[in-house]
């Protein structure tokens, strides 16, 4: 039976199980959680928002990294990404609750190039979508799965998030609505629509609370 409360840990486990148990090669999975944003002091004036609930980043398989035409990232952009990673590392290891604008301490992970999909995943943590807009918002409001495969489908989408995903090398993006949010998956490979995945999401994410 579904648990009364879904903790971050169980969300993480479900996202991980979804990706690691799939035959297809998914790069990441994100759960966009439904919440209500109170606009001003009027409590009746609320907007349904889909914001970061949790995410699981599997990473790029070597065969994908090799065959993929790299998005030319400028040296300045790569430096910027590394600096952000270093700062976030020092924030997390320092146990603080804020990100400062100062330089973080250098370490091995902070000196390694930050891939496009890592960056896309990281930036996603700062994003949220009003119900009805953006890829997750549209999937939720229509209660329908959105399945975009092929770079043309992503590049031609009216959703900025799909176009952004294509720029970062994604070939497939999927948003599957659930009771309390939307599960989004992305892949560097073309993956065709399957009812298996949708059914799995429905069974893994059919909880209350």
């Amino acid at each position: 039976p579904p648990p009364p409360h879904v903790t971050e840990d169980t969300l993480q486990q479900r996202l991980q199980a979804l990706i690691e148990g799939a035959r297809e090669s998914w790069t990441y999975a994100v759960f966009w959680q439904l919440s209500h944003d109170f606009a001003g002091e009027d409590v009746s004036n609320t907007a349904a928002l889909l914001s970061w609930g949790d995410g699981y980043y599997k990473g790029e398989e070597e065969r994908n990294s090799r065959k993929r035409k790299p998005n030319p990232v400028s040296a300045a952009e790569q430096e910027h990404r590394k600096r952000v990673i270093r700062e976030l590392n020092s924030l997390i290891s320092g146990g603080g609750g804020t990100v400062s604008s100062g330089g973080g301490s250098s370490d091995e992970a902070g000196d390694e190039d930050v891939s496009d999909t890592e960056w896309f995943f990281l930036v996603s943590m700062t994003q949220s979508f009003v119900n009805g807009s953006g890829l997750p918002g549209r999937a939720f409001s229509s209660s329908r799965t959105i399945w975009l495969s092929g770079s043309n489908a992503l590049a031609g989408s009216s959703c900025e998030r799909a176009r952004q995903g294509q720029v970062y090398g994604l070939e497939t993006m999927v948003c599957i609505p659930t009771q309390n949010g939307v599960v989004e998956l992305g892949s560097l490979e073309i993956i065709h629509q399957s009812s298996d995945l949708v059914e799995k999401v429905n069974s893994f994410f059919s909880f209350n609370g």
């Binding site: 971050e8 993480q12 959680q33 970061w52 609930g53 949790d54 995410g55 980043y57 990473g59 990673i85 976030l88 590392n89 924030l91 997390i92 609750g97 804020t98 990100v99 400062s100 604008s101 370490d107 091995e108 992970a109 390694e112 890592e118 995943f121 990281l122 943590m125 700062t126």
Partner: peptide, 26 residues
Amino acid sequence: TVALPQARKASLARFLEKRKERVTSA
């Protein structure tokens, strides 16, 4: 400075930890 919500902080910590593991094992 930017305050981080708890859910994102936990996700971020996991992401950075896994990234460290990937980099050091490569």
